[in-house]
């Protein structure tokens, strides 16, 4: 059934979420979310802490198990038991707030491990792709370094290169600059902006309003487990319609 649901590329959203609920015990974190990211779009999600924005992002590749609702990746319902979740995940790059590089492996091995293990690429091919992506994030000279010897900003750029080395169809960013010293934020955002310009589909949970305004195609404001407001970043940021959006923006801008 899944294949017939997928018409020509481009007409189906890269990410589509319908009626998503998530609760931990009796605590409801997501209270019915409808959300989509079109192919090639950059969607930024903002909101106060505890609003459920990270949980929403982590549901997209089912690192969090949804309690109810549908998650469609390129038209494919990934909660369907017949779907190979690992295969779907390999097509969704993910970047974490805490980088999560593998500390026991060199930068190059961080980038080739999943290529070889999941994609089944040979060593030479994997290394070549890894080097291309390291160059893209400006860290070619660090390929034999270990993560502990890199700055936070460098680690996050390596993490982006690691995700890109799988040639993903889309990228998820979970507060990618929140753990960084202020002077290191710019380099990471620069790499992300470059990716966006190349047409990468991106979902970004962030506190960087400047990035959301300049790079985002759509801005989603969440609060209390629901999507309160969404629209063009310029509109939402300069002319918020809801009281909760206004109050949040007045605190962060």
């Amino acid at each position: 059934m899944t294949a017939s649901l997928t018409p020509e590329a481009g007409t189906v959203p890269a990410i589509e979420i319908r009626g998503l609920h998530k609760h931990y015990g009796r605590h409801e974190v997501l209270k019915g979310i409808d959300f989509h990211v079109d192919s090639g779009q950059v969607v930024c999600v903002i909101g106060p802490s505890g609003s459920g924005k990270s949980t929403l992002l982590r549901c997209v590749n089912r690192l969090e198990e949804p309690s109810a609702g549908e998650i469609l990746i390129e038209g494919l319902d990934i909660c369907d038991r017949k779907v190979d979740l690992d295969e779907v995940r390999s097509r969704i790059g993910m970047v974490f707030q805490q980088f999560n590089l593998f500390p026991h492996l060199s930068v190059l091995k961080n980038l080739t491990l999943a290529q070889r293990n999941v994609r089944g690429r040979g060593k030479d091919e994997a290394v070549q792709i890894a080097r291309q992506n390291l160059e893209k994030v400006g860290l070619s000279e660090k390929e034999s370094a270990y993560p502990a010897h890199l700055s936070g900003g460098q680690q996050q750029r390596v993490a982006i290169a690691r995700a890109l080395s799988m040639n993903p169809d889309m990228m998820l960013f979970d507060e990618p600059t929140s753990a960084l010293d202020p002077e290191l934020v710019g380099d990471v955002l620069g790499v992300m902006q470059e990716l966006a310009q190349e047409g990468m589909t991106m979902m970004v949970v962030t506190h960087e309003m400047g990035f959301a305004r300049e790079v985002g195609d759509k801005l989603v404001f969440m609060d209390g487990g629901v999507v309160v407001e969404e629209g063009r970043p310029v509109d939402v940021l300069s002319n918020p319609q809801h009281e909760r959006t206004q109050s949040f923006l007045s605190k962060v801008l």
């Binding site: 995940r89 390999s90 999560n100 500390p103 026991h104 491990l113």
Partner: peptide, 25 residues
């Protein structure tokens, strides 16, 4: 836990995640 999450988000199977990422650490 982020180590497992990173490996799984790259599409690695649970067994490979344990052997290549978790156990060496």
């Amino acid at each position: 836990k982020g180590q497992t999450e990173a490996a799984r988000s790259l599409g690695m199977r649970p067994g490979a995640t344990t052997v290549k990422v978790v156990l060496p650490q």
